[in-house]
Design a protein around this nucleic acid. Sequence first.
DNA 1: TATGAATGAGGTTTCATTCAT
DNA 2: CATGAATGAAACCTCATTCAT
Lengths: 213, 213, 213, 213
Amino acid sequence: MDSVLPSPRGRGRVPDPQRTAQTRDLILRSALATFLARGFEGTRMVDVAAGAGLAKGTLYLHFKDKDALFEFVLQQLISEPLARIRADPAPAGETIRAKLERLFLPLLRDFEQSGRATVMRLIIAEGARFPTLAAIHRRLVIEPMMQLIEEVVQSDAATGDGRLAPMARFPQLIGAPVVMAAVWNGLWSGGAPVDPAAMFLAFLDAVLGPSRT
Amino acid sequence: MDSVLPSPRGRGRVPDPQRTAQTRDLILRSALATFLARGFEGTRMVDVAAGAGLAKGTLYLHFKDKDALFEFVLQQLISEPLARIRADPAPAGETIRAKLERLFLPLLRDFEQSGRATVMRLIIAEGARFPTLAAIHRRLVIEPMMQLIEEVVQSDAATGDGRLAPMARFPQLIGAPVVMAAVWNGLWSGGAPVDPAAMFLAFLDAVLGPSRT
Amino acid sequence: MDSVLPSPRGRGRVPDPQRTAQTRDLILRSALATFLARGFEGTRMVDVAAGAGLAKGTLYLHFKDKDALFEFVLQQLISEPLARIRADPAPAGETIRAKLERLFLPLLRDFEQSGRATVMRLIIAEGARFPTLAAIHRRLVIEPMMQLIEEVVQSDAATGDGRLAPMARFPQLIGAPVVMAAVWNGLWSGGAPVDPAAMFLAFLDAVLGPSRT
Amino acid sequence: MDSVLPSPRGRGRVPDPQRTAQTRDLILRSALATFLARGFEGTRMVDVAAGAGLAKGTLYLHFKDKDALFEFVLQQLISEPLARIRADPAPAGETIRAKLERLFLPLLRDFEQSGRATVMRLIIAEGARFPTLAAIHRRLVIEPMMQLIEEVVQSDAATGDGRLAPMARFPQLIGAPVVMAAVWNGLWSGGAPVDPAAMFLAFLDAVLGPSRT
DNA sequence: TATGAATGAGGTTTCATTCAT
DNA sequence: CATGAATGAAACCTCATTCAT
């Protein structure tokens, strides 16, 4: 009398994995938005629930507690850039510049719209209080990223013009514009956000010499 | 010789401004440590009080409420780099490199030990939820800093070798290594912090060409 | 057959208006008792909750805060005598005496047991500090009551023996025995409360001449 | 150098009973005003102190605690009407009416301005929560007052025209207009206070028959 | 005596979590 | 599975009271 398709008579509802996954997703989506807007302690479970069109109690059917919800949100956030990094293999004979652009530009094109900028701000904001999460993030995102960067730096030393040499000891400098873009647009832009991709290209110009494009 | 008119009763115990200031300072010191460790919402007034060796109620003799305490902490934090910026006038005939080093190196020498790194992380972390404070910080610290940087960039365009030219549109890139150093050491270093000053010098080497030192 | 459009998930436990109303009522009952016994500031929310067999937090599901709870208690208290006043229309050809008895005696019969006496004391006690509530009470109870009294006084002037004439300028004197009964039994009776109805009848005897009953 | 007269050199100050009494009086005056305005629980010791131009601690040199202060204030308030009652002896051959006017009118002439009305409201308001004080008030004020009233009623029965007879069982009815005046002007007058003395006279007119004045 | 900084018990309110329906 | 009323620990803040000066 309720559902039309399955539910072959018997007792109650048959658990529908599709529906369950959908509910989980609704929660995660709402939780992400709320955590980003209010931080961990500022987030109210009831708001997350309302944002997902659910009742408070339902959250606890899917996540043990608020901490667990936070962890799942971050892990999901983290898994996506990770997949992107792992995905495409390097073309052969790529220049340093091309390699850096290939690695970073897709990430920065819709930095704010995609939520990645806010995620970075969230991790910066809450990382200190959630060392476990910071560690996960480090392991899943930062370390692979750093490995790629170091490869770039080394290939510059081997085959390039050596302009990256001064950064050999501090490869994380390559990521500095990304972090700066996230922080700047979050706090200091005063309503005039910078374009992260353009800023990164300017950084490459300054370090590698202007591109001819 | 004391007061001539009212003084209707005895003076009683005279408030000692020294002692009052000392208590205030104890509170601010403890509050800073706690806010840095736990963020605004994570900070418990009892802990701030205990950290200052005082009772809860005493905090409220000096600060209206938790928000006011937070404001005072941040304002005090903000006033320091501001003073630094305002302090020394530019020597004449200074090279671009010298100017940038003069502006940034003192800030970065004891970045972690001085607490400045943690302060930067605090502001990044809580700025979004305290827009008023973020605005103050922007006005008092970031904007003057940016003005100095833009002067440097322009003087490079005018009299230097023009290697800063690509950054003209994004002068905040000069500050990127500072932000990156704070974030890196706070979250991603995994126990192996970088030396912020050395990292900044490497950045300058990469952008301006290696120094001969 | 239930809802056609949204109903995105199951309905879960359906809120039971009966049960909700019952809980609200439990709270209001306990709150009335406590406010009457201790006044507004003397009332502790824990005690109200305990008196209703509930936990503190539950109060806040039904009433925004202590002020709101107090308002609801008083409004409920006020609504009852108001309804009584509005209820019965005057029979034709009623004597002054009969009219006054009809208006006041039902109110006074179980003055203490009904809680009306205590309510009057509560309003006298807290009215000064809750001007809004005093105004509501004035509008809902006192003013209608006074209108009825004035009608009585005028009909006495027109058709009666004029013994109420001296009170024409101060019709509230008719209510004085009621107020006195409440205050007397609350403070000054010393364990020997007066019978408010009997006292009111004595008052009528004194003013209108003894009844033959 | 401070005081001019006594203080014969030696150690510290010689306790000056005059000054002490004056301080006590300052406190009592301020406490009265504050208790009347805010009730017992609403009164802050610091406000009482400020109102007396003193510091908080000083209150505790003169009164053990807030309860004691309240008791002293009320006792002082109570002693005044008592003195009035005891003061003047009844003239011989006085009519009932004259006697009632002599007893009540001085009390009612400046009922509001003198603060007596507010005092009555205070006692009504807080009496329930301070049974001891209510008892004192009953013993010192109400009972003597009632005794006087009963004498009046009895002398009416003996020598008067007996119009007070219906009130013999409820002599407190005589006081009802006083209580009503206090309550009315405090809560229900809506900015148009009644004249308590005039109201009392109207009451006498209604009960004893109009005076020829 | 007088003072007012300091105390900490105690009050109101919030909100993560549970559980009967 | 979903619900939301109920819970109660825990946070912020107030203010009567103390006590060193």
